[in-house]
C-alpha cells in the first residue's frame, strides 16, 4: 500500500489529535484522543509485528524443546511457520507460550536454576521487544 501504512497511520493520528480532538469535549474528546493514540500504536506495530513473532516463535520453540528434554517430556510438534499471517503466527506463539507456562512451573519444582534463568531471560527479551512507545513503563 502506498503511502506506506505506518506513515499514513501516524499522519491520521496527528490530524485526529491536532484538528479534531481540540473541537470536542468530555467523553467524545477522550475517545478521539485514545483513538489517535491507538493509531500511533498501530503504526509502530505494522512493520515489525510479523518479523518479531516469527523470530520469537523460533526462540520459544527451541526453549520449549530444551525444557521438555530436561524434564523427560515429549518434544513439541515440529514448528510450522509457513503461514506468515500475523493471526497464524500469533496462534503458534500462544500455543508455545501455554506450553512454556507449564514447563516453567515444572522447572521451578526441579530447581533447575540455569533453565529457570534462561526462561526469565527469554521473557525479559520478549517483553522488551513489545514495549509500547507511549507506555508509562
Amino acid at each position: 500500500m502506498k503511502p506506506a501504512v505506518p506513515a499514513a497511520t501516524r499522519f491520521l493520528a496527528g490530524k485526529l489529535r491536532d484538528d479534531i480532538v481540540p473541537h470536542l469535549t468530555g467523553f467524545r474528546q477522550g475517545n478521539a484522543a485514545m483513538t489517535a493514540a491507538m493509531l500511533d500504536m498501530l503504526a509502530d506495530e505494522w512493520d515489525v509485528a510479523a518479523s518479531r513473532l516469527h523470530g520469537e516463535n523460533a526462540a520459544l520453540y527451541a526453549l520449549v524443546g530444551k525444557c521438555a528434554a530436561f524434564l523427560g517430556e515429549n518434544a513439541p510438534a515440529p514448528l510450522d511457520q509457513s503461514d506468515l499471517r500475523i493471526s497464524a503466527l500469533t496462534a503458534t506463539n500462544e500455543a508455545l507460550r501455554a506450553q512454556l507456562i507449564d514447563l516453567h512451573a515444572a522447572i521451578e519444582e526441579n530447581e533447575a536454576t540455569d533453565l529457570d534463568a534462561e526462561i526469565w531471560a527469554f521473557l525479559r527479551g520478549t517483553v522488551e521487544s513489545r514495549r509500547v512507545a507511549s507506555a508509562n513503563f
Partner: peptide, 27 residues
Amino acid sequence: PTVIHAYAAWWLRNAQDRAALELMGKL
C-alpha cells in the same frame, strides 16, 4: 464496545509485564 477497553489493553498489558519483571528482579 468502548474505545477505552481496547486502548487500555493495548497500552497497559506489556507495561504490566515489564513492571512485574522489575519487581521480580528479572528486568
